[in-house]
């Protein structure tokens, strides 16, 4: 048994390695060029450019108010960019209504969880995709969701609502999954579960754009890290290069 486990983990390491060495050749699923967005006088996002490559986890980090959520809102069509282009594979999606961007394959969650509070767990999931209980249960199980399908969403704890929201985003057919601070505001047990979920998603080769505050976790899980500060990309690179960067440390510690 132990032997088997050791072999499995060894194989996983080999896969992991293959995956990392492959990264250079991977296609960009999402490419953002020079997007900007102001609210009144505030330049929330200022000429931001980056890419998200296929089968990678790209993390967006930066202090509060750096513009991370606004970038998410622009990508998902909830905020209109003042300038710039957004390409999902070959398709320019900038300025499209959010439902069409979703249909094109971008699924997301919110910093403050959004569930359909008066609908059952099952109906919440069915809004994402018309499917049977079997598939719904499978996806919910994958995020360690524990309650029955008939539970009304408002009766779930905040942590369980967060898991439901992630399951719902996973169920919707997508090419890119965007998670806005999935581990924030939940109890330590759910936080551990969320980390495990992300690790599993990584193994499955999902393409994910992640906003996350826990640096240790970000550095552990990400293929690439983008540091945002005052709406600009301050630095972009592999986790091990980012942790050493002086400017990044200043942006975090200097504030």
């Amino acid at each position: 048994m132990m032997l088997l486990l050791r072999n499995v983990s060894k194989m996983q390491r080999i896969f992991e390695h293959a995956r990392k060495s492959n990264r250079k050749n991977k296609n960009a699923i999402l490419s953002i060029s020079d997007i900007s967005k102001s609210f009144g006088g505030v330049k929330a996002v200022n000429k931001c450019s980056f890419e998200v490559k296929e089968n990678t986890i790209t993390s967006l980090i930066g202090p509060n108010g750096a513009g991370k959520t606004t970038v998410f809102n622009i990508i998902s069509g909830l905020a209109k960019p003042d300038a710039g282009a957004i390409r999902l594979e070959k398709k320019n999606i900038a300025g499209m209504p959010s439902y069409r961007i979703a249909q094109s394959g971008i699924s997301r969650t919110f910093q403050l969880t959004k569930v359909f509070r008066n609908l059952s767990v099952r109906d919440n999931m069915l809004i994402a995709k018309k499917t049977n209980d079997e598939e719904i249960k499978k996806v919910l199980k994958g995020v360690y969701f524990e309650k029955s399908l008939d539970t009304i969403a408002s009766e779930l704890s905040y942590g369980q609502q967060r898991l439901l929201e992630i399951a719902r985003a996973l169920l919707m057919p997508h090419k890119l999954l965007m998670l806005d601070e999935p581990t924030a505001g939940v109890n330590p047990r759910i936080r551990q579960e969320l980390r495990a979920i992300l690790k599993n998603l990584r193994k499955e080769g999902k393409t994910i754009l992640l906003i996350e505050h826990d640096m240790e976790f970000v550095m552990d899980i990400s293929d690439r890290v983008i540091v945002l500060n005052e709406g600009r990309v301050l630095r972009e690179g592999r986790p091990k290069d980012i942790v050493k960067d002086k400017r990044v440390l200043e942006a975090y510690l200097g504030k």
Binding site: S76, G77, L78, P97, S98, Y99, R100, I101, A102, Q103, S107, R108, F110, K114, V115, F116, R117, N118, L119, D123, N124, I127, A128, R168, M172
Partner: peptide, 15 residues
């Protein structure tokens, strides 16, 4: 009903 509960969430699910 989903729109009633959260229109933004319904939109980002493709509705």
């Amino acid at each position: 009903q989903a729109i009633r509960d959260d229109e933004t969430a319904a939109a980002v699910l493709g509705k």
